[in-house]
C-alpha cells in the first residue's frame, strides 16, 4: 500500500510540476492527464472504484481531450520561454498554494478520523450513489446541487448552440444574396 501511494504521489507531483513548468502548452495538457490518472489511482486505493472511473471518464477522457482539441483549433502550439512561466505572480501563487496546503493539513490533523484506513471502505455502488446525492439519512442538499448544475449545463449547451447558429444564418443570408445576384 505504501509503495503504491508513494508511486501515485510521485506521479502526481511530477505531473503537476510538468503542467506548470512545461514550455509547450500541449505538453502541459498531457501532463495534466497524468495528474488526473494519479487522482483516479488514489480513488481506487480509497475503495471508491466508481469515483475513479468517473474521474477517468470525465477528466482524462473528456476535459483533457477537449482542452487539446481547443488548443489545436485555435492556435499554433508555441514554445513559451521560462521568463513568462516564472513571472511576477510567483509570490502570490506561492502564498495561495501554501494557504490551501496549510488549510488542508490543518483539517487532516485536527479531524477525528476514527478507525478509517485506506482500502477499508465499502465498494458498494448503491451506497456510493446515496452518499453522493445525499439521499437517505441526512440532508438532501447534494441532490439539490445536482439539479442546479444540470440546469446550468443545459443553459450552457443552449447558449453554445445559439452562439454557433448565428454564424449559420449569416452564411445563409449571404448565399441568398448571391443567388439573387445570379
Amino acid at each position: 500500500m505504501t509503495i503504491v501511494f508513494g508511486f501515485l504521489a510521485g506521479m502526481m507531483l511530477i505531473s503537476a510540476l510538468g503542467v506548470v513548468l512545461s514550455r509547450n502548452v500541449v505538453h502541459s495538457a498531457l501532463f495534466m492527464s497524468g495528474s488526473f490518472f494519479a487522482v483516479a489511482g488514489f480513488f481506487v486505493m480509497l475503495s471508491a472504484p466508481a469515483l475513479a472511473a468517473f474521474q477517468l471518464l470525465i477528466y482524462v477522457g473528456a476535459v483533457t481531450v477537449v482542452i487539446l482539441f481547443g488548443i489545436m483549433f485555435t492556435q499554433q502550439p508555441q514554445v513559451r520561454s521560462f521568463s513568462t512561466i516564472v513571472n511576477k505572480q510567483v509570490w502570490a501563487g506561492l502564498a495561495v498554494a501554501l494557504g490551501v496546503g496549510g488549510f488542508l493539513s490543518y483539517i487532516l490533523a485536527t479531524e477525528d478520523w476514527g478507525a478509517t484506513e485506506a482500502g477499508q471502505g465499502t465498494r458498494d455502488v448503491a451506497a456510493f450513489g446515496e452518499y453522493l446525492l445525499g439521499v437517505g439519512p441526512g440532508s438532501e442538499i447534494f441532490a439539490m446541487l445536482f439539479q442546479l448544475v444540470a440546469i446550468l449545463l443545459f443553459v450552457a449547451v443552449i447558449a453554445a448552440i445559439v452562439i454557433s447558429r448565428r454564424k449559420d444564418t449569416d452564411v445563409e443570408s449571404a448565399s441568398d444574396v448571391r443567388e439573387v445576384g445570379e
Partner: peptide, 14 residues
Amino acid sequence: INVAILFFVAVTSI
C-alpha cells in the same frame, strides 16, 4: 469488479 461497465466506458474514452 462491481463497476465493470463504468470501467469499460471510462477506459475506452482514454
